[in-house]
């Protein structure tokens, strides 16, 4: 196992993208970076630039306009990458299922690795989702036994 693979698993950099979310999950994603939950102690850093990121955290359902942006961001993240759909509406469309401008969950556009339930998802659940994604990532880069 090379040093790059090891650091990818030990210190994943996440990028958060908000689709047409209601903000609830976004604020919880931000809250998990702040003192009470503090994911930085696991080496998780929030990034603004897709080319720096290993994990894409997506909140909210996909609408017709964000579908293109989301695809674009996903393509810019270097391999291997993980996608986490945070919240009920990112997973399935949730409460917005009958809104006219909604395509559905994130898996309509991207392959999703981890689904985090909840509306809004709690910070504990989000951290749990990131940890699950890391286990998957370590298999992908060949670190896992």
């Amino acid at each position: 196992m090379g040093i790059i693979q090891k650091s990818q698993v030990k210190s994943p950099w996440i990028m958060h993208f908000c689709n047409s979310s209601c903000n609830g999950c976004d604020i919880e994603v931000l809250a998990s970076l702040t003192p009470l939950y503090d994911v930085e102690r696991f080496g998780i850093v929030n990034m603004g630039n897709p080319k720096h990121a290993d994990v894409l955290v997506v909140t909210g359902p996909v609408n017709y306009r964000t579908a293109r942006v989301l695809k674009n961001l996903y393509d810019q993240i270097p391999d291997p990458k993980m996608v986490i759909a945070v919240g009920a509406c990112a997973s399935t469309g949730g409460v917005f299922h009958n809104c006219y401008n909604i395509l559905g969950g994130v898996d309509k556009v991207l392959p999703v690795d981890v689904y985090v339930p909840g509306c809004a998802a709690r910070p504990e659940a989000i951290i749990d989702g990131v940890v699950l994604a890391l286990q998957k990532l370590s298999k992908a880069v060949g670190v896992a036994k």
Partner: peptide, 14 residues
């Protein structure tokens, strides 16, 4: 996106 989505006679589906 759907056109003129709020008009009543349009099918409402998302």
């Amino acid at each position: 996106s759907p056109v003129l989505p709020m008009v009543k006679d349009k099918a409402a589906g998302g």
